[in-house]
Design a protein around this nucleic acid. Structure first.
Lengths: 330, 330
DNA sequence: TTGTACGCGTTATCAG
DNA sequence: CTGATAACGCGTACAA
């Protein structure tokens, strides 16, 4: 078996309750003996038994993250950031990729202090009162019983269009995945059209390019087709990181110069945007901000059991890079 | 506080040790009272206290997976498969994306029964005797103290070349990332050259196309350049899933028909290969097999404390799809 | 077949 | 300042 405080006690010639206090840096024990005990503990390689500690009821300083859909790259970035952010706090994080309920059970067994749920899709009836829980994802219409953090996608699109408008663009196309079953995609799409109307920029169905998917080549394909039809806008709004990668690739292949001949702005505010062939101007809530907000909300919820509002929409920001320019005067 | 076996005992009118036995389906308790107790437990919504259970020393039936580099998509597939495979066993899985040592500490605290390490890169000095551990990744030269599961990349390349050889190909190019700092990439590259020599197929440096990266467009670019130089082989070996995606895209763009005009075989045996523009024939250890092997090795190690060999190289297999054909007789 | 009593490793509450 | 001692919730020899 492992070494316990009793072992330490006996070799230190004190009672184990004293050892416990000493190890917890209690003020109820003389500096002298405290030091002695700590030293012995270190020498013996003592490690407290977590199970025992928790049996006397205490918090674990661990937060669980439920992440059933690990294959989406964008979320991987977010998870990394969250992990980094968490590392700055006294908390650590464990993940589960199992289905929500099973993950929840596991976490409950381990008595994590709280859980973060990446609930892109379904919000099943989960027990809200059993354990502090916040969720990141689309704030659907369903009735939820826990705080939700989400990005304001509509606002993001508005900002994008506004930005392009200021640059003089009046001929703008949206290239993204128009999937009625995916609330996130729909919100971006609707954000686009709404913004276009707001800024009084005319557009038709032809200006909405449905990629039919979220991958690199979906964006590539869509733009390729567009180029062949000779309907060149002055600016493109890309629906996501991967899609935009395909967009600029296709543009480059066809010798359409960015940003001189065409401007491109992309949704998704992640650092990788800077490392594409052309550093891409983008719009969205930055993953860093998102991560920060998520972990601090979680911790606040854990420690105060109360959060300001039930659903927070994060404000997006626009990061200017090298892919947009004022429209040329012909 | 939560409800305990004592509560159940008192309302059932028995001692709590009886309850304990009943709940563990012991044969030492009459069927009748057992049923009664179980029912009460269920009615009361009793949930055993995990910490207490583990305090009396028992295994957790949980395996920890350390995965510091979550951003690599291929591994995401593997993790998913592992999770699924694990679900078939009595074990469940939790992940940590923290640095290895920190992850290990966390898992040790939670007393997981064993850990799986995705140690692509560094194998720091980790305590081998403290907790059953197996690793997946490149079997480097470093001295390790734990079982390693790896894929036999050399063999995979050999199989690929052999396959193409049988189809009559004598003009084969390798398109992959030649990165001296990445052991995995080097092993694939060397596997290619070695196999070419073995089958007596002549090749020059021109036949090794260094993509300079692992992404989609790296493969795209390399092939595009190749096509412009008019050095067309009869077959291409793609170095990885993403790269191959770019390869076939480029080929298609340039109206080089697969497989009539050129055959393509790719490294990485993952199901997604079937969903590319052209269902790709591929080579490598299938993720399913890999996942299966990994979880069963882990469990074996946990339950018997002994594994057959220290490092197992998984045998790759070739999956025929629509991207290879016999070379045309001109 | 059921109950008693002890131990698992810690923390916390009291007395000294 | 230090040391007993009682929890915490459960499993398990040992008794009954």
């Amino acid at each position: 078996m492992n070494i316990t405080i009793k072992d330490i006690a006996s070799i230190a010639g004190v009672s184990y309750s004293t050892v416990s206090k000493a190890l917890n840096d209690s003020s109820l024990v003389k500096e002298n003996t405290k030091r002695k005990i700590v030293k012995i503990a270190k020498d013996l390689g003592y490690e407290p038994n977590f199970a025992a500690q928790r049996l006397v009821s205490k918090n674990t300083k661990v937060i669980g993250l439920i992440w059933p859909t690990i294959e989406r790259t964008v979320l991987a970035t977010l998870v990394t950031k969250i992990s980094n952010e968490m590392a700055k706090t006294p908390y650590s994080m464990i993940l589960s990729v199992d289905p929500i309920q099973k993950s929840l059970d596991t976490f409950k067994k381990f008595q994590v202090d709280g859980v973060i749920l990446f609930g892109e899709n379904t919000l099943t009836e989960i027990n809200p009162n059993s354990i502090p829980l916040i969720s990141y994802g689309v704030s659907g219409k369903k009735n939820y019983h826990y705080p939700i953090i989400d990005a304001n996608h509509m606002k993001a699109m508005d900002d994008a269009i506004n930005y392009l408008y200021e640059l003089g663009h009046r001929n703008i196309k949206y290239v993204g995945n128009i999937s009625p079953t995916d609330p996130l995609q729909m919100e971006k799409y609707q954000g686009f059209t709404k913004a276009m109307e707001k800024y009084n920029i005319s557009y038709t169905n032809e200006d909405i390019l449905d990629t039919g998917g979220l991958d690199w080549y979906h964006g590539y394909h869509a733009v390729d087709k567009m180029l062949k039809s000779n309907h060149l806008p002055t600016a493109i709004v890309g629906g996501s990181y991967d899609i935009s990668g395909g967009i600029i690739r296709s543009l480059k292949e066809n010798n359409v110069h960015i940003p001189d001949e065409i401007s491109v702005i992309s949704y998704d505010n992640i650092p990788q945007m800077a490392h594409l062939e052309i550093p891409l101007t983008c719009i969205g809530v930055s993953v860093e901000e998102l991560a920060e907000k998520i972990v601090h909300s979680a911790i606040t919820l854990i420690e105060t059991k109360k959060l300001d509002s039930e659903v927070t929409k994060m404000i997006p920001s626009l990061v200017e890079r090298a892919s947009c320019a004022t429209v040329r005067n012909n």
